[in-house]
Design a protein around this nucleic acid. Structure first.
Lengths: 235, 235
DNA sequence: CGAGTCCTTGACGGCCCTCAATTAGTGTGG
DNA sequence: CCACACTAATTGAGGGCCGTCAAGGACTCG
């Protein structure tokens, strides 16, 4: 966030910031300056505190939300009360696309895990942009398609792999994503367990097992040093 | 499929058929006649025999395929050899959208379960249409979003519900979809088991249990009469 | 600093997977 | 159209993995 005019007056200043903010959102990349400005004009930015629910099951949520900073957890609660973490979204990701065209009742929850800067766009407005700037729609299609792919992976991992394998694959993925051997879990271990279709107890036991094997080292509740990536890949 | 001119000459005949065929595809609904004709001109229809693989893991598959008649099974095979059925597609559904924008290597398989009439469109062509007819992109977005939703349901069911509950929910869903109490499984029980994250043995036992309870009646390998829908809902 | 949540560790039980053998059904070829 | 071969489905026995319940300890955040 640069402040070219060196002051913090809300008016023109905020607009300039907004534009550079919109320009950095992946689904709007490729638009020219005028198009960016048009979108920025309809965007409602907001600083959302930690642990705030953006929407819940039963809501008719009329906004497409774009995360500029911070992380958001998306989860479902089944009829029988089981909480299932579906994904964790970060900077540049969007949510709320479910009811984009035909408004429908949401069946899942979205909660901020950290303080977050989130822009909201009314579905009617986004629809309008998608019709006028089809490249945005194409990028959204690509993103949704990738998201579908990773949810499919989640299905086959939960159905077909044992606990140790799921935990190991998760750690390897995290390390590759961050390109580091010391990783911080983006969510609590409880939520990681839910994401992997496990109980917290089982996750704890598997991690303890990996530590006994000398493959990882845990410090605190969130940080894990990966000592033997190859061993984890082979689990 | 009517043959208004009473002959099967491939030329103009096939084009007329093609247009009405394209017009019936959900993602092209809402386009006018000229637009339909333009798309029909680039479409390659083909009758695919039963049990033919449309694409497999490792393929770089450059076609978006649209199913006009017949059914197609989409599945994944994990590193450890587990086969996971992801979905079954029927008339009006499309597949092969994964590599629509950035070509990527497929990691799953698509096989016809019946003889099928399938249209192929090159990705380059579909991209072009999406940019010119954004309403098509919007419909695709909606479809992908719905598909994501049902895959998310699959995740939470496999992770959170026991075998009996998953089987019961599946049967109820099938009955509601077909609006009948006597349903034919769209796939073998083996594949249903895979879809539900179970082994065939467990599925067989749960169905036998339902039959003992007087909730269903099985005849042959595919047909199931549902005698007590409410009981199944409460499992 | 303190309260509440998260995490860990242990014991135990049950659900579902595995392995194996038989039966039923389906689709193919003569 | 029927027979046959092969795959699908069923049923049984046994065992292992993971969930459940419970309690103590650690961490985090207000």
């Amino acid at each position: 966030m640069d402040h070219p005019r060196g002051h913090t007056e809300p008016g023109a200043e905020a607009d300039g910031e907004l534009e550079s903010l919109v320009a950095r959102v992946p689904i709007f990349s490729g638009l020219d300056h005028g198009q960016i400005r048009e979108i920025a004009a309809r965007v409602q930015p907001r600083i959302v505190p930690r642990n705030e629910q953006l929407y819940g099951a039963g809501d008719v949520n009329p906004y497409l939300r774009i995360i500029h900073t911070g992380t958001v957890k998306v989860y479902r609660i089944t009829e029988s009360g089981h909480e299932q973490v579906l994904r964790v979204l970060g900077a540049g990701d969007f949510l709320g696309e479910k009811a984009l065209i035909s408004p429908s009742v949401s069946d899942h929850f979205a909660v901020t895990l950290t303080e977050a800067e989130i822009c909201s766009l009314e579905h009617a407005a986004i629809r309008d942009y998608l019709l006028r700037y089809p490249s945005v729609a194409l990028t959204m299609l690509e993103t949704l398609s990738a998201r579908l792919g990773s949810t499919e992976e989640q299905v086959s991992a939960i159905a077909g792999e044992d606990a140790a394998s799921r935990v190991a694959t998760y750690l390897v993925g995290l390390a590759e994503e961050l390109k580091r051997n010391s990783v911080a879990l983006p969510i609590t271990k409880k939520d990681v367990a839910s994401f992997l279709g496990l109980t917290p107890e089982t996750l704890s036991r598997r991690l303890a097992g990996f530590e006994d094997n000398g493959w990882i080292h845990q410090q605190g509740n969130r940080r894990i040093d990966i000592l033997d990536l190859e061993a984890l890949r082979l689990v």
